[in-house]
Design a protein around this nucleic acid. Structure first.
Lengths: 288, 288
DNA sequence: AAACCAAGTTTCATTATGTGAAACCACATG
DNA sequence: CATGTGGTTTCACATAATGAAACTTGGTTT
């Protein structure tokens, strides 16, 4: 409830806009992962035939892909129902992704502290493919672990963390993200076009933090700050969420300094952190 | 650091025991996923060259695989350090896996209740590839730092949930799991061979629940029960963990009935649950 | 029963894809 | 400026993926 939950408005069919861009461009592996995505997107275990119609691949090809994925435990086949669902191997791999990300493990104690001190819901998010990916979360009362809520994605254009992060992107990167927004109107305060959002992002940047004024869910508001690297790159976002019947936007605004301080320490640690036996780096081609 | 996989050693080589069995047998996709596993197993971001030595694949091939995976956002490349880590797409996919599994989402409220009532750490786990996969977790009111987390895997032969589940497997399935144990001696109560474990499993089965008597971590004990389907199939395991300085094994034993009751309701719900618009059987037709 | 249908599985000639030794590049270092 | 190391690209070649079509299985209708 408190959070998004809405992968909803995005209901992309197989081929919508992924033609030349990313998916099946690179070989068999791309196709297999494409299929994996499709199964995941169904939101429930699926039959082979359900996958088939709507799939760009012919029967035999799809069949082989699904077989391979099942073999590899990326998909799980339920023989009783004849359905496929994303497999557990993914969970193990995702755990590795989480642990190895430079942000989440480092931020963990900070979230604990913040959550304890404020007593409100705290989110840690990163931008992923134009969407907000919640990588960790603390509930007001009880701390919830990883995949219960974290792992979920939400829209960027109408959430606090999303806007906080976008506000600090430079032109090119920002455009990419803007291109991926769905601009669905969730509430009557939702900003539903680039111009409106751009203006808002400008203000947020000046201010140093962003609000969510019930733009995603009625009654839910939040303040969010970006987590910025020394060079100003956006590493992630941090937010405190509450309900309008508990706190006002002004109340939340007063929490901004504390959030920023936390964000700063996270960024700091993230940059200096070395994994146990990581070979000290020889500088590689600079990003630009 | 104890990653304690089945391999059990710090630097597991590529091809150790996965030759004929599973990995690269099925085509390019298999190889790509193999590489993905390797990156994950490193436990930290890796350089290309680090992957290369120890890889069965020649430079160019490995390079292409890594490129493809990065392209697909299954790997994330850090240009500053020149390293690869498991990518966020995995987290999204894993979330789908979690949500679609018949156990975890259903068990969630039960875990909440149990955790609130007992005030101790609660685990929900499933058997995956011979290991215990923790699919959800609630921390104790006063959390003890211990090594489990949702998404993490652990050994089956020396954990409460592991033993509770194994105790209710039939011959063939049990053997498969036993074959995958590493029998590493974590503490001096760890059971380090099949015979000892088999005896223990027998008792646990009779008793209806299993203990962990500091077999995995000193000072950490637990009771665990299996979650069994109507037909007796092992769906998962449920445990309460505590520290020896807080509770005794006898204290824990007294919680067993409550655990069993919870397990029973979870099993019950899991069996009857239908996803929203899951086709009951045969044809799906859908809109057309 | 026979005929039918839909989901799932296998075949096999064709072709696209992946392969990997070796060459190449870019940078750092002695 | 020679040498080394990590990373990237090439290209002739072999393998692996493709997909139309045929086949199997199991349930439903005539």
């Amino acid at each position: 409830m408190g959070m998004s939950g809405t992968s909803g408005q995005l209901n992309p069919e197989w081929d919508v806009d992924r033609m030349g861009e990313k998916s099946s461009s690179d070989g068999t592996v791309g196709k297999a992962l494409d299929v994996l995505d499709q199964v995941a997107e169904f939101g429930r275990p699926v039959r082979f035939s359900e996958l088939l119609d709507g799939s760009p691949y012919p029967k035999a090809t799809l069949y082989r892909l699904v077989q391979t994925l099942t073999n590899q435990r990326m998909l799980h086949f339920d023989p009783e129902r004849g359905t496929y669902a994303p497999g557990f191997r993914l969970v193990r791999l995702a755990h590795a992704a989480w642990e190895q990300s430079s942000l989440a493990p480092i931020a963990r104690p900070h979230l604990d502290a913040l959550s304890a001190r404020l007593g409100e819901t705290v989110h840690l998010a990163q931008l992923d493919h134009g969407q907000v990916l919640y990588v960790d979360k603390r509930n007001a009362a009880d701390p919830i672990e990883m995949f219960s809520q974290a792992g979920k994605v939400g829209p960027a254009y109408c959430t606090g963390v999303g806007k906080a992060m976008m506000a600090f992107l430079d032109g090119a990167a920002l455009d990419q993200v803007l291109d991926r927004q769905s601009w669905h109107r969730f509430t009557d305060t939702t900003l539903t076009n680039r111009a409106a959002l751009r203006a808002e992002l400008g203000e947020s940047r000046k201010r140093g933090y962003a609000f969510d004024r019930e733009e995603h869910e009625p009654g839910i508001i939040c303040v969010a700050v970006p987590i910025l690297s020394g060079s100003g790159r956006v590493l992630g976002g941090l937010s405190v969420t509450t309900a309008t019947n508990r706190k006002s936007l002004d109340d939340l605004a007063r929490l901004a300094p504390e959030l920023q301080a936390t964000a700063a320490s996270i960024a700091d640690e993230a940059q200096n952190w070395r994994f146990p036996d990581e070979p000290s780096h020889t500088k590689i081609s600079a990003a630009e």
